[in-house]
Design a protein around this nucleic acid. Structure first.
Lengths: 236, 236
DNA sequence: GCATATTTGTCCGTATGTATA
DNA sequence: CTATACATACGGACAAATATG
């Protein structure tokens, strides 16, 4: 085509990433190479390069001689993700410096979430919530933790995508976030950490409940593990 | 060669991994594709697939239109790695269940380290030390933390490779490890965590000191950042 | 259980843009 | 500035593994 100033593979990867996180490609769907090469207008090698980038972010999963699949979080994965979030976010807030740059980012994220909620834009509320917790991790000034958290958050967002009205799910937590950042600004990291702890517990419960309900709906009576549903990864 | 039961790319990746961690490919060296395709007898596509696996482990670093380089830990990277280690390992030990499987693995790692030290096999002492701390992370029962730690440990091992007599470096810490696992077995996780904390502090200091000395030696007088040394990543 | 079709894994040759000497 | 070396991207091809009827 015309000009692609930065790698074509990354362009393809970005487009696929939006498609996945946007819900266009539900978790568990198989990404056939030949079909995507036609739809995206790139060669197979380039597409596979994009696959490498996406699997690095944890959005895709590779099965030998079977292909690439959109990662489908299991119940155990969600539990593990929240365990990791507690381990990282709570100490990050506890030992936070009140005038850290990331605190300002937390504040703007809360403001954006408030505005988006007032406008009924639930998707933006979810994005702002993600940004808020990413800023919490940024309090540690650790690039490795930040990169790790990006991967975790992407996986969790996939789980949200499985849920029906997912964005509405964390809309009520805007107040919690506001309280957390206010306590930090006022120099009370311990109080902020306590608030964060209860938030994580509640959020995990809500997500797990919705996930269990989803699993019940999709696996009604006779065959709890049909081949089609196995591929969604929910029952693995 | 003959039969390659599992992917050829993984076979190549394994061989390169051993070459890198073994010191055959020092940090900062550039991995030219065409040359490696000849030496390894594989095609470029397969080699790039292997590159993807290794960069996922943090052993390789990619620069656009310049190629793949063996990751060269910087001073800031080492500091960050130890910060992450504290964040993960200390809580892991603190909330450890004394009869956890991983405790047994810690014990065997200590025994192996003791035997290796008696035999003067410093390389095996280092490997056992790595296994010991991997077992500590396994106390959390979190597959994501374990995978993350693998990446961190690989990067740290690269830093050790830069150091001259690196294996000798953590030989004196066998006693610390023995104390930690004994306290855990005796049901004193708090004491074990305290001991682990001092170990991490001391280890970080030793590594950073050796690293600073290495940098001084390699950048003697006139040109602190020659093009060859820049590529080592030490001064970046 | 078997034969077929589809898809991935791997290799090759080539053209083009980019960085470095 | 030129020239070389290399990464990027393309398309085609065959073997091996998997899925399907």
């Amino acid at each position: 085509m015309s000009g692609d100033p930065l790698g074509l593979a990354e362009t393809v990867a970005t487009r696929l990433r939006e498609e996945i996180t946007g819900g266009g490609l539900p978790p568990g769907t198989r990404l056939a190479e030949v079909r995507l090469t036609r739809d995206l207008g790139v060669s197979r090698n380039t597409l596979r390069e994009a696959f490498r980038l996406l699997s690095r972010d944890g959005l895709l999963r590779h099965e030998p001689h079977r292909g690439m699949f959109v990662a489908a979080p299991s119940m155990a994965a969600i539990i593990d993700i929240y365990r990791v979030r507690r381990l990282i976010e709570i100490p990050a807030v506890t030992q936070a410096w009140p005038r850290h740059d990331a605190v300002a980012r937390m504040r703007t994220a809360v403001d954006e979430a408030t505005a988006a909620r007032a406008a009924g834009d639930w998707r933006s509320v979810g994005s702002a919530n993600m940004a808020f917790h990413a800023a919490i991790v940024a309090l540690t000034d650790s690039p490795r933790l930040a990169a790790f958290y990006v991967r975790i958050a992407a996986e969790l967002r996939l789980a949200f995508g499985l849920l029906d009205s997912a964005e509405r799910l964390h809309a009520p937590y805007v107040e919690d976030n506001e309280t957390i950042v206010r306590l930090l600004e006022q120099g009370d990291p311990a109080g902020a950490a306590a608030r964060l702890t209860t938030y994580l517990d509640q959020s995990e419960r809500v997500v797990l409940d919705a996930f269990a309900r989803l699993a019940d709906d999709q696996a009604p009576a006779v065959s709890p593990t049909g081949p089609a549903l196995q591929r969604t990864g929910i029952f693995r």
